[in-house]
Amino acid sequence: MIKRRSLLALTGLDLLTSAVLAACSPKGGRASADATGSQFLDALHVHTPTTLAYAAPMTSFGTYGYLDALVGEVTKDNWASVDVLKSLLLNGETDLAAVPSYVPANLFSKGVDVRLLAIQVWGMQYVIGPVGSAEQGLEALRGKTVGVPMPGNMPDLIFRYLLGQKGWNVDTDLTIQSYTDGQEALGALLTGTVEYCVLPEHPASMSLARAQQQGKSLERTVNLQEVWASVTGGEARFPMAGLAMPTALADRSDLVGAILSELEAAVDDVNAMSEETVDAISSVNEVPADVVKEVIPRLQLQIVSGADAKDELEDFYTRLATLNPDIIGGSLPAGDLYISDPR
C-alpha cells in the first residue's frame, strides 16, 4: 500500500543541531522479523520535494514489487524547505529522503548517522529571460537583476560558482535578488519584478507556459548544465541531488538493493514517457501533461549508487567548497558516506 501526505505546512529555521539520527528504524517505521529472520519494515517513509525531478519517479515508486518482501507500505510526504529536510534526518523521521547532494555530506561530517544511497538528478538549472536573450547567453545578465531562489542552497550555489569561474564579480556585474523558493522567484519573474530568473525544472518550464498564457514571451536564456561543461571540461551534468537514508537501514544490503531496483524501474518508466506514465504524473502532481512532457527530458534522471558516483561527487563538493567549505561540513566526507550497490 502507498500513502501520500504533505509537509508543506511545516516551517522552521536553524534546525541543524548536533543531534544524531536514532540508531534504529525511524519513528513509525518499526521493524519485525519474519520466519527467516529478515527484518520486515511495517512502513518505508519517503520524503521528497515537490519538483517533478522527484515527484515524477515517486508517482510509481513502490509499485514494481521489489519491496514487497521487505516493506509493508510506502508512505510519501513532501518536505517544504531544506531546514525541514535536515530536521527529518536529524530526528530519525524518514527512511529515504530526496536531498541536495551536499546535505548528506554536511550532516555526515557533523557526526549524523546518514548515508548517501544514490544520485538521481544530474542537473536541471536554467536562467529564464526575455525572448532574444539566449543569443547573448550569460552576457545578457550583465547589469541586470536576476532572481535566484533558495539563497545558500543548490540553485544559488551553482549560479554563483559558475559566474565566478567565468570571471564575473557577483557583487558588481549584476544584482542577485534572493527568493525563498522557486515559486516565489517565478512569481517575481512573471510580474516583471525581475527580468531574469534562475529556476530548476519544473518551475522553469512552468514559467514559459504561464508567461505565454499572460501574453509574455520568455525563453531559456542560459542552460547552466552547458555552462558547467564549459567550466569543468566535462559533461553537461553535475550530481545535483540524490537520496539519503539512515545508517541503520543503509547497513541492510537486502533493503538497499530492493530500493535501488525500485528506483531504477521508476526512473526508467519516467524517461520512457509513455502516455500512461505522463498522465499519471500529471494527475498526481497537478501539472499539465504537456508541461510534464516538456520537463522530463530536461530532468536528467539516472540512478547511480553513491559509491559509483563518488568521484563526481568529490569533484562537485570540492568546487562548491570554494564558495564556502561549511557547505560540506568543512572538508570532504569520508568514504563511508557513499553506499555501494549490493546487487
Rank of each mutant, 00 (worst) to 15 (best):
V71L: 10
T48K: 06
M206I: 14
K216Q: 14
Q302T: 11
S101G: 11
L190W: 10
D308Q: 15
Y317P: 00
T63M: 00
T75E: 10
Q120N: 09
E93N: 10
L89R: 12
Y179I: 12
E235I: 04
L263G: 00
V284W: 02
T193R: 13
V194M: 07
Q125H: 14
L313C: 04
T145W: 02
L320E: 03
E294R: 12
L157T: 11
G164E: 10
G215K: 05
D290G: 06
T75P: 00
A289V: 02
Y126K: 15
T63K: 13
G330A: 04
A80T: 08
N324R: 06
Q214R: 12
A43F: 02
P26G: 05
P325T: 00
E294K: 15
N324W: 09
F238Q: 11
R252V: 08
L117D: 05
S253G: 01
E312A: 05
D171S: 13
A244W: 05
T232L: 06
V127L: 07
R220T: 12
V84S: 09
A236H: 02
A211F: 09
S109M: 15
L141P: 13
E312Y: 02
T221P: 01
V198N: 06
S25E: 12
S282C: 03
V121T: 14
D68Y: 01
A289I: 14
P155N: 07
Q120P: 01
A209N: 05
P203M: 03
G92E: 02
V287Q: 01
E73V: 06
A334C: 04
L96H: 00
A9K: 13
G111T: 11
M124P: 10
S109L: 10
L44I: 04
L299D: 06
S38P: 00
E294A: 15
D268G: 06
T318L: 00
M273N: 03
E195D: 12
S81V: 01
A265D: 00
E226F: 05
G233I: 01
F61Y: 05
G257P: 07
L138H: 09
H202T: 07
Y126S: 15
L174D: 08
L52A: 14
V292K: 07
V194Y: 03
T247A: 13
L190I: 10
V231P: 03
G37V: 02
G123H: 01
F159W: 05
A140E: 06
L70P: 02
V82Q: 02
A118H: 04
G147E: 01
V256A: 01
S340H: 14
T50K: 07
E219A: 04
T318D: 01
T232R: 14
R298Y: 12
F61M: 01
Y64L: 04
T94F: 03
